[in-house]
């Protein structure tokens, strides 16, 4: 197992570097670098002063160096925790600290709720295969998968916030609140984005759990367990569900990365100050420091979750031999 982990880590390294090259390359190819942006901010300067500024900024941001040298500098800085600065001159690490915390809080709830409901509903749907309950969730998951999350978000805002006036339309809890009142307000602001992201994530996971359970329930060992006179509860939860967990683990761990990357639109719709909405603003502002940092972070999360999935597979499926 230890050997396998080390081997996997070594295979991840070139993938990470390849991703970093792509991310850096795209940022360099896209029009609008830091010098252009800073010059646009200083458009009131006279032509001669702008030229002086252009030369100074080109040097400052290393744009006078060849692209491979710039890449090495960027990567070296990234590894030492220096992610550069935003277009308004703030350190990227500082600019991303709060959004990252908010995204993690939001997504933890989403993963937890989505997983809980998926397992309960998936098992029940498999047990009641073909009945009304199963059909309802089949249709629900189909609708959930086909509807874009921003649309679900807008519908929820319209019904729950605007018409029923139960929750805020979006935003973050007030900085003035502390302790319990802050937590209550945080929950109020999180409910709609959580529901939106959960519906998006739940729809797929329910189908996976259900199908895995249906497969498991059709296996010979289940027939054997039933013929031994075991109760249906024991058959379903101890025998079938344990085996159905294998594909579910892949989906659940894999979805962690997806949630970080996929919440940009939902966060923007609900004015949630997270990594996703920060990424959208940064792209609009050509704030490459932020864009590269968030993309590299998302890439790293994906690699990490893939790695964890492989390990988890071995843990839940005794048939898998890691070598």
């Amino acid at each position: 197992m230890f050997k396998y982990i080390i081997k996997r880590i070594f295979t991840l390294i070139p993938v990470f570097f390849a991703m970093s090259i792509i991310i850096f390359g795209i940022s360099q190819m896209t029009p609008g670098n830091m010098v252009d942006i800073k010059l646009a901010q200083n458009a009131s300067l006279k032509q001669a002063d702008r030229e002086i500024m252009r030369i100074a900024l080109t040097k400052k941001y290393g744009l006078d160096k060849p692209i491979h040298e710039r890449y090495v500098i960027w990567l070296k800085n990234t590894f030492t925790g220096d992610l550069g600065e935003t277009v308004d001159g703030k350190p990227v690490t500082q600019a991303l600290a709060e959004p990252m915390k908010n995204t993690i809080i939001l997504n933890l709830f989403v993963i937890l709720i989505s997983l809980t409901i998926s397992i309960i509903v998936g098992i029940k749907s498999a047990v009641k295969k073909g009945k009304l309950y199963d059909r309802f969730w089949q249709v629900f998951s189909l609708v959930g998968t086909s509807m874009p999350t921003f649309f679900i978000g807008i519908i929820l805002i319209f019904i729950v916030a605007i018409n029923l006036k139960l929750l805020p339309t979006g935003g973050m809890p007030s900085v003035r609140l502390e302790g319990l009142s802050y937590f209550v307000e945080l929950l109020r602001h999180m409910i709609l984005p959580i529901i939106t992201l959960t519906i998006g994530s739940l729809a797929g996971t329910v189908r996976y759990v259900r199908n895995a359970m249906v497969d498991a329930l059709n296996q010979d060992y289940i027939r054997t367990a039933r013929s031994k006179g075991l109760s249906e509860k024991v058959v379903v939860y101890s025998h079938a569900f344990k085996n159905a967990l294998i594909p579910v683990v892949t989906i659940v761990i894999g979805s962690i990365g997806g949630l970080f990357a996929g919440s940009s639109i939902t966060e923007t719709v609900f004015s949630w100050n997270g990594l996703g909405s920060r990424l959208v603003s940064a792209i609009n502002a050509r704030d490459w420091g932020i864009v590269m940092a968030v993309n590299l972070f998302t890439a790293a999360i994906y690699l990490l979750t893939n790695f964890i999935t492989d390990i988890a597979y071995a843990l839940v499926d005794p048939r898998v031999k890691l070598s």
Binding site: I157, I162, G171, S271, S281
Partner: peptide, 18 residues
């Protein structure tokens, strides 16, 4: 001063009393 990224809902935030 409350900053909200979704500009489309500016009036709704007023009408909701937010």
């Amino acid at each position: 001063l409350k900053a909200n990224k979704n500009e489309e809902l500016r009036f709704q935030r007023l009408s909701q009393g937010e």
